[in-house]
Amino acid sequence: MDPLTVTTTRPVAPETSHLDLLESHAAFVIREVAAECERPVLLFSGGKDSAVLLHIAVKAFAPGRLPFPVMHVDTGQNFPEVLAFRDATVTRLGARLVVASVPDAIARGRVADPGPLGSRNRLQTTALLDAIAENGFDAAFGGARRDEDKARAKERVLSFRDAFGQWDPRRQRPELWNLYQGRVNAGEHLRAFPLSDWTELDVWRYIEREDVALPSIYFAHERAVVRRDGMWLAVNEFVAPQDHERPQRRQVRYRTVGDATCTGAVESSAVTVAEVVREVATATVSERGATRADDRFSETAMEDRKREGYF
């Protein structure tokens, strides 16, 4: 084509929205890390934030394939709907799935089995750091957002981890403008959080706009639950009612997705994305406050886990 002949059927320029700018920034971060790091990996739990992250990553490299694998840190205590969603998503995208398995870590003697009533929450850190070391990953994308928790509110978009996988909140690298630098020495790695500036509501509005597929448990359904620590916990193969607990059938949905033993449901009648958006817009309790037992151990539960190398 003659470079001076301009096409006359110009497409229009649509209005730029807040979601467009958030999506653009996330794609920018993903491309920077993919370009600067040797072996990145995307942490994919099957939860809504990592589903959005994966959706943007796929768009950022289309029509090419995703230039990095995805990794699931599997506690062995999953909601079956989430595992099915994980496998279907990975197959649809032709992505390579790495599973960092807590049951394997227990079988290999890397960590002790906490038993049926103990939490596998912290064991995920060992499985994650082992898999990062074994695969030689130098960057791991995560869907964490700063609005989730007061320790996460402090974190950089590109967050440095030392050779022990530790986060040191007193010595974070300065992060100026959009100049993300991903240089690490052997054994160290980065966590990259492209959704840092998104709120829970932004995530749901984006899911609505882009029609991002999610596990069915994000939408209202009836299930047997028990009241424990102020949360509704599903009764299933991992959670048995204790003596004083009486299982009830309730209309619930999940606001976050994690290990089945410590992730609670909320009562809800929202069965469509639009209804969830409305519910989230008027929520009076934070998503982690409503649904995560693992954040209630202490005032700084998230900071303490993050220092050890948690997500």
Binding site: P3, P11, A13, D20, S24, A27, I56, R209
Partner: peptide, 22 residues
Amino acid sequence: TRITELNTLHAGSVASAVPGLS
């Protein structure tokens, strides 16, 4: 040279894009 096509993540091929758009 000249830009013959410009795509945003959301809208595909468009006439123009403002600063901050990928």
